[in-house]
Design a protein around this nucleic acid. Structure first.
Length: 574
RNA sequence: GCCGCCAUAGUUCAAUGGAUAGAACGGCCGCCUCCUAAGCGGCAGAUACAGGUUCGAUUCCUGUUGGUGGUACCA
């Protein structure tokens, strides 16, 4: 299939609209709101009729006469004020399912390929990763996977915080720890390391002076301090990689391009902005005034690119980065998976990038923002004692809880197997709980609802997969090329859900909304569960059995692929 | 102050301007001699408030209330 079902129906209805004198009128195809309205509905007739002062039901019947859905729909009817309800023919759905099974991409059409930079995770290397890094990391990872699946060339950019005055303090403390012979031990817990360094900094004036000197030496390229800094970064990145490994996130060292990578470019950017008349001096700082962000009095908002003391800010670094992504990486599209609170910064940065010509007109710049994680009290998620929750500890807790539940349900299963299931289920539950929500809103993190492992959770989807795996364990032979026959309503609904995979993926890529894929997979799993209850597979016979087994096969493949795109694993048993 | 975002069942979340606002959890009632009940079916339950635009508004506009975030030298 070269297009999604919606695209196909849109083309057909648009053609019919054009045939009755409504050229250019949008067909407005949407999945039907209710089962009795069929599978898809075309809502465009009402608007077209209104614009032409026509009777909408009359126009709908004219459109219907011209509408060619031969071989596609089994029923097309006008309803309500002028809706066109379309029910797809079982044979058509069966054919699409058949095609999907023969295709490595499960029948998902590949759009025109773009080169897409996805900036995500980007932790500060001065400290250990905490829960605040979870959303960027997994949302970005899911988007990167979906874009790659659709044939885009994704360049992941882990824009880590590896620069700034705090690294003077950390390297100074590292050399002390090394002299004390306990550097390895001290670096075991980065959070603690930072705390102790900060305590030294605050309590000991000599150490503070020493730290400041190190900042200067670091910036000046001093070999010894640079080596210490590199060592610290290396340790910190190892901590990150352990978390990525546990999370099943594909980021590697090759994707790391930290803030420090742009150091040399910062004065160049500022000079360029000045030369272009964009940056001007104000109160000793270099500032770009943006009339796009002015208040009612017409006063332009300031966007500072260089401080009074000559230092640079993240605004400058981000401008250098966007220049790099456009000019060197030649990206068609750049996604910034960063906290929604930085929305204003990105809007300003994008505006300056356009004005300065750093990002060409054709390059899409998108801030993929997301809300904060809240505790069950509605306040930012913290430990009982008010500290930040380390990501590594959160994930351990998830596995721990999952292991207890797995053990409860499968007392006789070998421990190693229970551990493997607990890892997939626990981590999957954490990721799914996050990814399944609209990223724009804040969300409440709740162990209880996340690890109840029932309802709309990752384990529900994983369980649907294991049920299918269980069926195939009992199958000795079946005709993998047998025709798919959709007679029962549950079979038809399952097939419909299966062929909608492409719509879900295209929506995710277009809107950068992973929760669309979660909603899709939950719907698919639900349809499968209903099919499983209503249509015996192994107890049926002959062609019917083969057909049902093929539906099972495609469902399993789609679930595995879809969950894989969310970075969630499936299990043969659980 | 100014600018932005948010407000949907008891709770946690959905809903490209479309029909009777969907789920999940919790509550109540059913379904395992039958492919794993981490499942399936049923019942009750919601758009903060007031206007406006529209054939049609949870969605767009205005105002109100209540949250929350950003906002000249952190990121």
């Amino acid at each position: 299939m070269q297009q999604t079902l919606i695209e196909l129906l849109d083309a057909r209805v648009s053609a019919a609209l054009a045939a009755v004198g409504c050229e250019g009128a949008p067909a407005v195809i949407a999945p039907a709101g209710r089962p009795e309205f069929g599978d898809y509905q075309a809502n465009g007739v009402m608007g077209a009729a209104k614009a032409r002062k026509m009777n909408p039901r009359q126009l709908a019947s004219e459109v219907l006469e011209k509408l060619d859905l031969a071989g596609i729909a089994s029923k097309v009817e006008i309803a309500g004020p002028g809706f066109i309800n379309i029910t797809l023919a079982p044979e058509f759905l069966a054919a699409l399912a058949h095609e999907a099974m023969a295709d490595a991409k499960l029948g998902v059409p590949q759009p025109v390929s773009q080169r897409v930079v996805v900036d995500y995770s980007s932790p500060n290397l001065a400290k250990e990763m905490h829960v605040g890094h979870l959303r960027s990391t997994i949302i970005g990872d899911a988007l990167a996977r979906v874009l790659r699946f659709l044939g885009h060339e994704v360049i992941a950019q882990n824009h880590v915080g590896d620069w700034g005055t705090q690294f003077g303090m950390l390297t100074a403390y590292l050399i002390e720890a090394e002299q004390g012979g306990e550097a390895t031990l001290a670096l075991n817990d980065l959070e603690d390391f930072y705390r102790r360094a900060k305590q030294r900094f605050d309590a000991d004036e000599a150490f503070a002076t020493h730290s400041r000197e190190y900042v200067v030496k670091l910036q000046g390229g001093d070999a010894q301090v640079n080596a210490l800094w590199q060592k610290f970064l290396d340790v910190s990145l190892h901590h990150c990689e352990a978390v990525y490994e546990k999370l099943g996130v594909g980021l590697t060292r090759a994707d790391v391009r930290g803030e420090s990578a742009y150091n040399d470019d910062l004065p160049v950017v500022v000079a360029d902005l000045k030369a272009k008349g964009l940056a001007v001096e104000s109160e000793g700082a270099q500032v770009v005034f943006l009339e796009e962000f002015s208040n009612k009095e017409g006063e332009a908002q300031a966007y500072i690119v260089q401080k009074q003391d000559g230092g640079y800010l993240y605004a400058t670094t981000d401008l250098a980065a966007v220049r790099y992504r456009a000019a060197t990486l030649k990206a068609d599209r750049a996604l910034y998976v960063v906290d929604a609170r930085q929305g204003l910064h990105f809007q300003q940065m994008f505006t300056v990038s356009r004005k300065a010509g750093y990002a060409p007109q054709g390059m899409q710049l998108e801030h993929v923002g997301f809300g904060v994680m809240l505790g069950e009290d509605g306040k930012p998620f913290k430990t009982r004692t008010g500290g930040t929750v380390k990501l590594a500890e959160l994930l351990e807790e998830a596995e721990h809880r999952a292991f207890a539940l797995v053990s409860e349900k499968n007392a006789n299963m070998p421990e190693s197997e229970r551990r493997a299931i607990a890892a997939a289920v626990g981590i999957g539950a954490v990721k799914y709980a996050d990814l399944s929500k609209n990223r724009n809103s804040d969300y409440v993190f709740s162990w209880d609802s996340m690890l109840a492992f029932e309802g709309n959770t990752a384990p529900y989807l994983q369980y649907a997969y294991t049920r299918i795996a269980g069926v195939f364990r009992r199958v000795e032979h079946f005709d993998a090329a047998a025709p798919i026959v959709l007679e029962e309503e549950a079979e038809r609904q399952l097939a419909l859900a299966l062929v909608r995979f492409s719509e879900a993926l295209h929506s995710v890529a277009r809107e950068t909304m992973p929760h669309f894929l979660c909603a899709y997979l939950y719907e698919l799993s639900g349809q499968f569960m209903r099919f499983y209850e209503a249509c015996p597979v192994l107890k049926s016979e002959g062609a019917l059995r083969d057909s049902r087994l093929r539906l099972c096969r495609l469902t399993a493949d789609t679930l595995k692929t879809g969950l894989g795109l969310l970075g969630i694993g499936v299990l043969e048993a659980m």
